[in-house]
Design a protein around this nucleic acid. Structure first.
Lengths: 222, 222
DNA sequence: TCAAAAGTGTTTGTGGTACACCCATGG
DNA sequence: CCATGGGTGTACCACAAACACTTTTGA
């Protein structure tokens, strides 16, 4: 067995957000071959002196302009022929960007754009596979952890939260059952503030920092 | 941003088996620095022309002498200083070796040895962290999928299966509830054969190849 | 006939699901 | 006063948990 250092290590990030009642991911249009003109998820080479997490955070900041959001490792893809330029192993991450922060990206630079995860263009490399896998994981996680809040602003109404869950899961949920379960799980608390708009004003909630993120022993939405 | 190819990509595998009613992992004693004399999990460099899965399967065969067993990607570890020799990113896997196949390794070569996961020696690199993470994942998986059979021979009794679950989970389970749930899940079927030994002979079961591995919507052992 | 392990049912509690109406506000 | 979205309770069912004795074989 020989050491082989001619393998490049990259990170690629599936960045999710909620926009227009839709679950979207940030895509960049490739300006060079291979796959010139096709869409790809943001990524970059891991530098010699940065950890994988640091590399992922750097790419996330460069492309989406956000820091400190939920990010977690997804899977590592290493098919031999996944990049025609050479041997590339990519550590894929996914990130959840709160809806209001998602405005920065996609508007200024024309090569980065939010697109519906339910209607993806043809993608470069194996990125379609990566995005589908990320969606599967996100849905799965949503069912048994409290990660859904990461897609919302700091304070939110129960209806907004329910809409977020419905958008990600792709199904409608019963309002009374949703509210009962979320409140029973003790992961959110009232702020005391109200939000008014059309109709009756709604209580605002915030995520409880001391809450146990993993909702133990039973899936939240089986 | 520059391409940096001076990052080495390795695979490391946490190989689990059941021996002597104990959950054990295969460890190798390092014969060279760094961490000379310490125990490590088996691993190797990813070759230029093999996928990550192929590399993992190769290491598994070289070290444990088995093929075709359950193996899955665990996590990728990439701390900058995790190996004093240089920048190493390791894609960690875990494998489940059926009890009877676990005899090959550890007996012949004196530098590979099965050791209890509940009483690990001091380990090289960040391998202690990797093993602990693997155990956590294995337990978690056992609770909501049918992966437990992968640690048993092709046919087995319900008592053996229950003992396997108890050994991995580290807790005792109720016999009647265990049997009812396992049978209801329809993941195993009777072979028609019996196994005799001390006491009343037991029905032998086999894993149903057509069974859905993911036990949907509810954890098997909450 | 005894030791050792296999096998079997019932009760009780908890949580999931389904379901329809009144409330508070702004225009 | 009406349109709009916010907020609430109950009945039924399915599954989880707790729990002890009988059966079959080999020694």
């Amino acid at each position: 067995m020989t050491k082989t250092s001619d393998i490049f290590v990259t990170v690629d990030i599936v960045i999710f957000t909620l926009r227009d009642g839709d679950l979207q991911v940030l895509l960049v249009k490739r300006k060079t071959p291979p796959f010139e003109g096709r869409w790809a998820i943001p990524g970059g080479f891991v530098q010699h002196d940065e950890s994988l997490e640091d590399a992922a955070a750097r790419v996330l900041f460069d492309e989406a302009g956000v820091r400190g959001v939920h990010i977690e490792q997804l899977y590592t893809f290493g098919r031999v022929d996944r990049d025609p330029r050479g041997r590339m192993v990519t550590v894929a991450y996914f990130a959840l960007v709160p809806a209001p922060l998602a405005l920065h990206a996609g508007s200024s630079t024309s090569d980065a754009q939010w697109q519906s995860v339910y209607n993806l263009p043809e993608m470069a490399f194996d990125h379609a596979e990566i995005v589908h896998y990320a969606l599967k994981r996100l849905r799965y996680k949503l069912e048994y952890t409290a990660v859904g809040f990461q897609l919302l602003p700091k304070t939110f109404t129960l209806s907004q939260l329910q809409k977020a869950y419905e958008t990600v899961l792709g199904e409608r949920l019963d309002k009374r059952n949703f509210r009962r379960r979320i409140l029973q799980a003790q992961v959110i608390e009232e702020t005391g503030e109200m939000q008014s708009g059309e109709g009756r004003p709604a209580k605002l909630y915030r995520y409880r920092a001391d809450a146990v993120a993993e909702v133990k022993a039973r899936r939240l939405f089986p």
